[in-house]
Nucleic acid binder design. Structure first.
Lengths: 245, 245
DNA sequence: TGTAGTTGTCTAGAATAATAGACAACATCG
DNA sequence: CGATGTTGTCTATTATTCTAGACAACTACA
């Protein structure tokens, strides 16, 4: 009763996209671990019952994602995609946590602004009614790949210049130091999992249906006063979280 | 910092499909609850920045799914999509559990056969080594919609004719009676959630990325002897499970 | 009854996706 | 070097998707 499954035509999803998605899960399943390479485009075309050019489009898409690398005359190599592990503890730092597992680590601000804090943010940051907050949306990169996207909220009175400092240093820890806060601690972290929404798929270059780990965190200064609340979504493909007690 | 998100071209996903998916979540979010109807095709086309015909394709797709119903000259009505609740207890019966919440309830056999039981099935059904089992794949309907698909395994010695009886009666309970077993009890149920695979999407008419609830169950006769083990996947959109202790 | 608002259908054309084949460019290995 | 196997690029053709516009068919309401 096993059902051989090929690509579906007229499904509203282009063949190359279906094939790319299936190759991606085959890679994740370790199907090509023996050789570390994808089969030749011609073989893949036969397997999926499509033209070689269609497979080429799929593989090109995966190459753009950074999942594979193809070199002319040689073949298509599967790049190491070991999941990064982000330890979460009292002293969680994105860069330090990921560093050593991946090459360059930095974050890039995609949007920022100052505005009156919402009720949630007022509660989480223990702000007075009507206080302003700095909101920053940022994408985290490790080893050249986007692995996370976050929304951060800081009290506007103490951290008005966070956005500039983050852009300059590529690190929240360093930006805190620049704002006169040399140390901070993780007060709480809540973790959930769900489907990536359109915004996350866009920022993290995920496929439809991809799964994200969402961590909602509050950081406090050494006196226990909240300095940051944030909502970070990690691509579940690329990151696993390790809770340290 | 809100980001207006329109449809993506050249993404490998047809525009009508993207639009259908977004309308589906808008409905789920209650966006059209005031009127109970979709906006006119012309308005939707403007909202998504596409042609009216493209929206029509999306709405036709949703209509085929049974999510909406459009009538000429009037508009497109959103159909009631209250989730059905299936109580799970010692005396779980699909028909009886769903009945009363939805109109016609029945199951349809899509495949069946008798073969030597796998190791898992031998263990679960407590069969002697090398025994045969009857395997049946079936889709459950409620109110005209497919809500579940299942694989069932029965000991072949006692229930050789299950497939015929199920096809004839549309009910497992009745088929058991026809096989001389007037009563049975639920021994165990394990529940998990995951993405629907291609087979499930096909049988249940689900979209890519849809989520299924998977229940693995064992039923026993009044003497405690296993008579059935099964793996049922419910469309998480359409069914919720209620555990009764 | 008639008017406004809506969906259904038809035609046609443009843009995109997929197929097909030929050959060039490159890597590897004997 | 030369043979083989691979990817890259080009052209051409077909199929599908999307756009565009016109008008018919239908509903609802005054």
């Amino acid at each position: 009763m096993t059902v051989a499954k090929s690509v579906e035509r007229h499904s509203g999803v282009a063949l190359w996209r279906q094939i790319a998605d299936r190759i991606r899960v085959s890679i994740a399943d370790g199907e090509f671990d023996e050789t570390g390479m994808l089969p030749p485009a011609f073989d893949l075309a036969a397997r999926f019952g499509v033209n070689r050019h269609t497979v080429r489009a799929a593989v090109a898409f995966l190459a753009e994602e950074g999942l594979v690398e193809t070199v002319q005359g040689h073949g298509t190599t599967i790049l190491g995609r070991d999941k990064l592990t982000l330890p979460i503890s009292k002293r969680t730092r994105f860069s330090a946590g990921i560093g050593g597992q991946a090459g360059a680590v930095h974050i890039r601000v995609v949007a920022s602004g100052t505005h009156p804090a919402s009720n949630d943010v007022i509660r989480l940051l223990e702000l007075p009614e009507g206080a302003d907050c700095v909101e920053i949306e940022e994408v985290g990169f490790a080893g050249g790949r986007a692995v996370s996207c976050s929304q951060h909220f800081f009290p506007a009175d103490r951290f008005a210049a966070m956005a500039e400092h983050i852009e300059a240093t590529g690190s929240i820890t360093k930006a805190f130091i620049a704002c006169g806060l040399p140390d901070y601690l993780r007060k709480s972290t809540e973790i959930s999992a769900r489907h990536a929404d359109a915004r996350e798929r866009d920022l993290l270059k995920l496929s439809p249906g991809a799964i994200v780990l969402e961590a909602r965190a509050i950081n406090v200064d050494p006196d226990g006063k909240p300095v940051q609340c944030s909502r970070t979504r990690f691509s579940a493909d690329r990151i696993s979280l390790k809770l340290e007690v």
